[in-house]
């Protein structure tokens, strides 16, 4: 599933059947190349939904057990969120110092949150090559 498809999707509580919010952004851990959390547009409880608290990432909505699954970001998540770590629009540099273009979209597995590919204007890059995302660029291993 692409970030662009998933963005804006409803977050629904399975216990109350209420819509709790909409997906606003994604928090990536480059070390594990997977999603650690989603951020939702501000709710009463907070704005961060850890991936581990999600019941299911469905094609129409993301379900969570209860409204309490959404809370304010802890330090670990806060360190990974923010504009500096956001991949979309960021240039991609290899460790050899070559600019490959900028990230247009990210494909991930809705089952487990693993990143699959970074989509660039020039083609896709396997997410396994990702090393880190910083303020200037996403750094990837060179094409082997």
């Amino acid at each position: 599933m692409l970030f662009s498809e998933a963005s804006g999707r409803k977050v629904v509580s399975t216990s109350t059947a209420e819509t709790l919010g909409q997906i606003a952004d994604f928090v990536i851990d480059p070390q594990t190349r997977s999603l650690v959390a989603l951020t939702v547009k501000k709710t009463d409880h907070g704005d961060t939904l850890l991936w581990s608290r999600i019941t299911a990432f469905g094609s129409d909505a993301v379900t969570v057990p209860a409204a309490e699954a959404i809370f304010d970001a802890d330090d670990a998540v806060a360190a990974l969120s923010g504009k500096d770590h956001h991949p979309i629009g960021k240039r991609v540099l290899t460790t050899a110092g070559e600019d490959l273009g900028s990230v247009a979209d990210v494909d991930f597995d809705p089952e487990n949150g693993r990143l699959i590919t970074l989509t660039l204007a020039t083609g896709g890059i396997a997410a396994e090559r990702l090393i880190a995302i910083g303020s200037y660029a996403a750094v990837v291993h060179p094409d082997s």
């Binding site: 540099l93 880190a132 910083g134 303020s135 200037y136 660029a137 750094v139």
Partner: peptide, 10 residues
């Protein structure tokens, strides 16, 4: 030319 860390920061 920018100097970039492996963490992606210039």
């Amino acid at each position: 030319r920018p100097v970039v860390t492996l963490g992606g920061n210039d």
